[in-house]
Nucleic acid binder design. Structure first.
Lengths: 265, 265
DNA sequence: TTGACCTGTAAAAATCCTGTGAACGCAGGC
DNA sequence: GCCTGCGTTCACAGGATTTTTACAGGTCAA
């Protein structure tokens, strides 16, 4: 698919100089990241759907090894990179054997840190592809990455590949308004030509197919002069009222966990 | 989980001291390895079915980057670890971005090198130990791994080796859509060239042979623009009706794996 | 309210994808 | 050497999908 898939990263480090410099670069690269000055509970990490975790052992104190062990055990698909000060061979070997994917010594160059994070994510992604169900549920929609297809109560929307990728992209950044150029760039993989209406046409096709299977919901909203935003909303008459009630709960949980924790590039 | 899965490693290095010390340890750990003082052609690497490749760039000379690029491109599933003398950040970043999985500076401790090789190789879910001697039953099809052959009510489909491997892969992840590139990568062992139609051709051969012995079932489904999915479905006229009734329920029994009690002499 | 500029919509045109049959080359067995 | 089985490649036809084009309707700012 796309060469540069966006990476979701969490950083556990209290070295503000290092974190600042790194963040500047990761943001420029379009990564989504969250920084914390202390340990993040593994349960929270699960909810974040991360690609990688960068951690400085010194902020973890005595708990460091326990924490690493728990994280590696609980999240075998998460790329874990330790980036810390002085360390012995024995420590590094222990960490790596425990499930850490890479171990970098400080001081280090942020570009190399990023390259190593990319390398780890690349490797993880390859193995995980398929093993993980990767099903996202929004509104009454189920988006199944392993099937390249979306469903409503078990029935396929019969999306073509492009349609699916577009839907997946939009749903991935639910609530965010995406410009046409950005959409095109990420789905088609190259820059949009001036005057190209492909995005509009595919949005219409998507809307048609969504409407067909899920008539009482609106998923894609137009932002005049800007682009589109994916946000499931129950609408219509009486049906909508109940649906809305049902929708509220998971809606909030979802967006809180996934989005509010991350800075938007 | 996996205690000590044996690792197949190739080492390209002419630093005899380093290689000797390392080899002693890898042998003690039960790894299989081949050492070479000069570049090994990528085609040969394919045939070796390696887990990882450890390479010192200095023995590759000017060809180093080209070689790395070719290897990483052709064998995306191979763990590539560079272990070399002095290097700049830019070089390491270039290597890692190119597909190298880890980059270690010499001098280094052999134990750490091994731990890093393990970390890179840690991901083999595909080593299906159970399948080796197992029989999978799907639809009215029996796939016998110990015979490299599939049967319908005792009659062989006369699959060739490749056909069998393709079928086995597909059946292994029943219900999942696999992209052509992924199929090729896993059956042929290296990256698919752009425009290669081998997968399609083998799918056709498989379908022919499946149809011949099991006419009232459809096994392989095409997903336009994506790839193929294995999912046995009873179809057709009167035969299909009964078959369908049978097919719906034993969904669970379908994927049952029967382990034969005896190894083949 | 008007006019310029966007967006929704439908259908034609162009492109791409898959199924298929056959030719080719290679290796192993006779 | 000759034959046979196997894997690869090519070419083409029929469909499915994507892109382009045209026009109608909507939106916004002056």
């Amino acid at each position: 698919m796309n060469p540069q898939q966006t990476i979701r990263l969490a950083v556990i480090d209290d070295d503000s100089g290092f974190v600042t410099v790194l963040s500047k670069r990761t943001e420029a690269a379009g990564w989504q990241q969250r920084v914390s000055g202390s340990a993040i509970p593994p349960e929270e990490l699960v909810a974040m759907k991360l690609n990688a975790l960068l951690v400085d052992l010194s902020v973890l104190g005595d708990e460091a090894w326990d924490y690493l062990a728990r994280v590696c055990d609980l999240l075998p698909d998460l790329g874990v990179i330790v980036c810390t000060g002085r360390s012995t061979v024995a420590q590094r070997v222990r960490g790596l054997r425990m499930g850490v994917d890479d171990w970098i010594g400080k001081p280090c160059h942020p570009e190399e840190v990023m390259a190593r994070i990319e390398a780890v994510s690349r490797r993880r992604r390859r193995t995980r592809a398929g093993v993980e169900s990767g099903t996202v549920v929004v509104g009454e929609l189920e988006i199944r990455a392993d099937q390249f297809q979306a469903f409503v109560s078990g029935e396929s929307l019969d999306l073509t590949r492009r349609e699916f990728e577009l839907l997946q992209l939009l749903a991935d950044v639910k609530g965010q308004v995406l410009e046409r150029e950005a959409i095109y760039q990420r789905v088609w993989g190259y820059a949009m030509a001036h005057g190209d209406r492909s995005v509009d046409v595919f949005i219409r096709k998507l809307r048609q197919k969504l409407e067909k299977r899920s008539p009482s919901w609106r998923y894609i909203h137009t932002h005049f002069g800007v682009g589109y935003r994916f946000d499931p909303e129950a609408v219509g008459g009486k049906v909508a009222a109940e649906a809305a009630a049902l929708a509220d709960e998971p809606e909030i949980a979802d967006s809180q966990v996934v989005h509010s924790s991350f800075t938007v590039a």
